[in-house]
Amino acid sequence: TTVKVNGTKYKFDTPEEAQKFAKKAADKYNLKVVVDGDDLRVE
């Protein structure tokens, strides 16, 4: 599972880890998590 934040992709072994990271990033930058198929985007 990958998470894309500000054009940078981060790869995670499990969707749970990816979800946690995406949520933290979204909170930090005051953005929202967008599900894109198997991957997540923070925008």
Rank of each mutant, 00 (worst) to 15 (best):
K11S: 11
K24I: 12
E43G: 10
K20S: 12
E17Y: 02
T1V: 13
E43Y: 08
G7K: 08
G37K: 04
Y10E: 01
D36M: 07
K23H: 10
K23Y: 09
V42K: 02
V3H: 00
A18V: 00
Y29R: 07
K9T: 14
L40R: 02
E16G: 08
K28L: 12
D27G: 06
K24R: 12
K4A: 10
V34L: 07
T8E: 08
G7D: 06
V42C: 05
K24F: 14
L31C: 11
T8H: 14
L31R: 05
K11Y: 15
T8W: 12
K23N: 09
A26I: 03
G7H: 07
K24C: 15
A18K: 00
K28Q: 10
K23F: 07
K24D: 14
D27H: 08
N6G: 12
N6P: 01
F12L: 02
A22E: 01
A26C: 09
V3M: 00
L40E: 02
A25V: 15
Q19T: 08
D39S: 12
R41P: 02
A22K: 00
F21P: 01
T2K: 04
D13Y: 06
R41C: 09
N30P: 04
G7S: 05
V3G: 00
Q19W: 15
G7M: 06
T14P: 00
K20Y: 11
E43D: 09
A26W: 03
F21S: 02
D39G: 14
F21N: 02
Y10K: 02
V33A: 02
D13Q: 11
F21T: 02
A26K: 04
D39V: 14
L31G: 15
P15H: 10
T1M: 10
R41S: 11
T8A: 12
E16N: 05
P15A: 12
Q19L: 15
D36T: 05
A26H: 03
E17N: 06
D36A: 07
Q19E: 10
E43H: 05
V42S: 02
K9H: 11
P15K: 13
V35D: 07
A26V: 03
V34R: 07
L40F: 10
K23V: 07
Y10L: 05
T14I: 04
V33N: 00
G7I: 03
T14H: 04
L40P: 02
E17S: 06
E16T: 07
E43I: 13
V42T: 02
F21C: 04
F12D: 01
Q19R: 13
V33G: 01
T8C: 15
G37F: 04
